[in-house]
Amino acid sequence: MRIPGAFAAALDGRGPDGLSPADGVSGRDWLDGLPRLLDDLLDGWALRPDGESRWGSCALVLPVRTGDDEPAALKVTWPHLEARAEHLALRAWDGDGAVRLLRADPHRLALLLERLEPTDLTDVWVEEACETVGGLLARLDVPAIARVPRLSAYAARQAAAPDSPAVPHRYTDQARHLAAELAADADVDARLLHTDLHYENVLAAARLPWLAIDPKPMAGERAFEVAPLLWNRADADELGTGPAIRWSLRRRVEVVCEAAGIDEARARAWSVVRVVDWARDQPPGSAASGLAVTILKAMND
């Protein structure tokens, strides 16, 4: 089976991602075995291709038909830590607010999912999109499950993290203090989180208007969920300029929190922690580091 060139280019050159030596595989080595993996899954699960594949930075999704001629989607993911628990979260949600899991092979990071539409929230008015995400977060609010990372462990790492060259010291220092303070809550690991529910990770569906996809599951506090809505869709056309930027960012937090039933002050605080962490991967002086500072100012003012 032909692998899309753009997908191969996104993975080529990646080294093993923090997995055990037995599981770790480079992007190139995984791509070399991907055609056989797809053929094995199609044969073993009695599936047949039914359209053009789609992909993200780490996963390929192939529209298929099942043995009963039902539409579905076969997702295969390059092995990395964030993908290991996806099937567990989807099973826990059982289709309520998220794409329904039909079958899973966790060892090979292969999932058979219900077929969704390719339309996401990118072109939906941003306030409506935030309200939609908030509504999905309300549906996805279930108790935490075993075998997923803990927010308390993430917070401990952030509380001890060094300064980031991409943002001023006052923000990294604030993020360290907030991480320790927020993690002191007794319920910090109580709920199952998606952690990456932004505009492109919501797709149109038949049985509900919109469903969440591609979770990076964590046991945590729901206020942690808001930050990805701030650094996505964040150009001048979306945020405005001058004083409008602060209003636009704060409004996103307000809308999603109201729809989801999340405490707005804690959402802003966790967003400071997450944005500082996100900024560590951005080159100093880049547009992304500038955006990080802009968000941090808006969360503080």
Rank of each mutant, 00 (worst) to 15 (best):
E127P: 10
L60V: 01
G261D: 13
D17K: 01
G56H: 03
R100K: 14
A9P: 02
F7V: 06
A10M: 07
A129I: 09
V142T: 01
W78L: 02
E181Q: 05
P228A: 02
K297Q: 15
L296H: 13
P16E: 10
R48Y: 00
K75R: 13
E200I: 06
G18Q: 06
G33N: 03
A59R: 00
A138H: 13
T172Q: 02
T241C: 00
E117Y: 09
R48F: 07
R108D: 15
E127D: 13
P35R: 06
A73D: 15
A205P: 10
G18D: 03
P215G: 00
L60P: 00
A138G: 14
G220N: 00
T132A: 12
L203F: 10
R28F: 04
H194F: 05
S20A: 15
G95R: 13
A159V: 02
V167H: 04
I3N: 01
A8T: 11
A267L: 02
L140F: 07
D96V: 15
E225V: 10
L193M: 12
P71W: 12
L203Y: 12
Y199M: 08
G44T: 08
A212Y: 14
R2W: 01
A183W: 06
A166S: 15
V76R: 02
R250G: 09
P63H: 01
P209S: 09
D173G: 07
R246K: 15
A259K: 13
M299W: 06
Y171L: 11
S164K: 08
P215D: 00
R65V: 15
D196Y: 01
Y171A: 06
P49M: 12
D50Q: 13
A160P: 04
G18I: 00
E225D: 11
A204C: 02
R115N: 09
P79G: 08
R14E: 03
L90G: 13
R274E: 04
C58N: 07
A205G: 08
S53R: 01
R28D: 08
G13F: 01
A72N: 05
L151G: 10
L11E: 01
G290S: 00
P63S: 07
V275S: 01
K75S: 02
A219E: 06
A206V: 14
